[in-house]
Design a protein around this nucleic acid. Structure first.
Length: 427
RNA sequence: GCGACAGUCGCAUAGCCUGGUAUUGCGCAGGAUUGCUAAUCCUGUGGGUUUCACCCGCGCGAGUUCAAAUCUCGUCUGUCGCGCCA
């Protein structure tokens, strides 16, 4: 959520941003209008309350002085003030609720260097690492590899839950654990603090970290308690400090979260969704930084550097792209994606997303730090380190052998008791 | 799940019985002063507005009242005890 002062003093910035995103200005106008109405209502409300407070003081004095005549007179004067104040309160509350309901849906201000364009085709290449692996045979898709090696049970998972769930089996399940351990150790060396968060969140906290539309399309609700399964550990880790005033001396807060992630994936279809690429549940290791606003752009680069070092160490060929205006979403101000080369389908596909959300989440969550001139919102940043299902797909496809088995990236072998190849599952 | 107690500004506290201007300490920030690894003093330290002032704010919500941190009801969270349990 953008700070209200942006609408009062700086609306041209928001308008210019809307132009870049090709969205109309009507919501901005509405927020400004409601804000003006609210401020008038609050002023009237304050006057009425002052009147009541003054009267209450006089009544108190009259009572102490034992002047019951005076008291009766004063009481008669303020008799109807209570209802009047209630009405004014109601009006003011209605106005600010409307104002903020709209303000919540207005997206973050984009960084200057975000490329302009309508969809992912306009994302621009930032950098590229590794080389496309060459095969003396026709490389298989990860889905074919899963079947040949019995590394996953998809139809059986569909029986007990539904489509897009999976049982991971045998060596591939072990590789998943190795990947988690390796990634966590990697992040610990960067002095991030490991966190296992709650896997469910209440509505209030969740509204602070995500686009409201996600409640319909992304998150699973948990009844009867009204909780939501987390779509990523970014959400609990970022919301962890909600409603707090943080001492600036503890900034930056650097966290590495490990959690299962749950996504409904409403509206997702197609051939590319076979296998475990796009699933309702997966495990993700996530980087989170809560920082002073002056430092956030440096930390955004730091998180990207961490990803690059990590994925280079896994020996995966991928490219980094700058996400363009049309592909950005509501919360981030700037976003890099890592896209791994998948030899099976012959495409680059997203494996990492690295965002600076500036003060957008912090404003909603009321996460502030002290400054000499009062409190000011922190910045929040998040980046995937590794989403295990997608990392496994990239490893399987890029490290595959002619017989369908898969070499284990060197850095993971120590986490697999020295094993060098993952073998088919027996049953 | 049951019962008792608790929730007050970053932290810790007083105020609640008996309704009438949110107390004190610590931490943090700014300033002053002294000068030796620091001390002392002053100021500030929840949110809002038409900002020399005023309004709101004592977990949240409702009620009683001219007036609620204070009384009543509901609710949430925590602590302890009991029960259940990996």
């Amino acid at each position: 959520m953008l700070d209200i002062s942006e609408f009062r003093d700086n609306d041209s910035v928001i308008r210019a941003d809307h132009d870049k995103r090709k969205i109309p200005h009507n919501k901005i106008d509405k927020v400004i209008q409601l804000d003006e109405e609210w401020r008038r209502a609050v002023f009237d409300q304050s006057l009425a309350r002052k009147k009541r407070n003054d009267a209450a003081k006089l009544i108190s004095n009259a009572k102490k002085a034992g002047n019951s005549e005076e008291m009766k007179k004063l009481l008669a004067e303020v008799k109807d003030l209570g209802t009047k104040i209630e009405d004014l309160d109601y009006t003011a509350n209605q106005l600010i609720e409307k104002r903020d309901a709209i303000r919540m849906t207005i997206p973050n201000i984009l960084h200057n260097e975000v490329p302009i364009g309508d969809d992912e085709k306009s994302n621009t290449l930032h950098s590229e690492f590794g080389k496309k692996p060459e095969f003396s045979f026709s490389p298989r898709t990860h889905n074919e590899l899963l079947e040949i090696n019995k590394w996953a049970e998809l139809p059986r998972a569909a029986k007990i839950t539904g489509s897009r769930f999976y049982f991971l089996k045998g060596d591939l399940a072990r590789l998943e654990m190795a990947l988690q351990s390796y990634t966590v150790d990697f992040m610990l060396k960067k002095e991030y603090t490991l966190i296992h968060p709650p896997t469910m969140m209440n509505r209030k906290a969740y509204e602070g970290v995500t686009d409201l539309g996600d409640f319909e399309t992304v998150m699973y609700g948990v009844q009867p308690d009204g909780y939501y399964m987390i779509a990523t550990s970014e959400h609990p880790l970022t919301a962890m400090y909600m409603d707090e005033i943080i001492e600036p001396s503890i900034l930056p807060i650097k966290l590495v979260g490990v959690s299962p992630c749950f996504r409904r994936e409403v509206g997702a279809h197609g051939q590319s969704d076979k296998g475990i690429w796009r699933v309702h549940q997966f495990t993700k290791i996530e980087q989170i930084i809560i920082s002073h606003p002056d430092d956030s752009w440096n930390f955004h680069e730091e998180m990207l550097e961490n990803c690059i070092e990590l994925w280079n160490s896994l020996g995966i060929h991928y490219r980094v792209v700058n996400i363009c205006t049309g592909d950005m979403g509501t919360v981030a101000s700037r976003k890099y994606d890592l896209e791994a080369w998948l030899p099976g389908p012959g495409e680059y596909k997203e494996i990492v997303s690295c965002s600076n959300c500036t003060d957008y989440q912090a404003n909603r969550l009321r996460m502030r730090f002290r400054t000499p001139d009062g409190n000011s919102s922190v910045h929040t940043l998040n980046s995937t380190a590794v989403a295990t299902s997608r990392a496994l797909v990239a490893i399987m496809e890029q490290y595959q052998l002619e017989d369908g088995r898969v070499n284990i990236p060197k850095v993971l072998q120590a986490y697999m008791n020295g094993q060098k190849i993952i073998e088919p599952t027996i049953i």
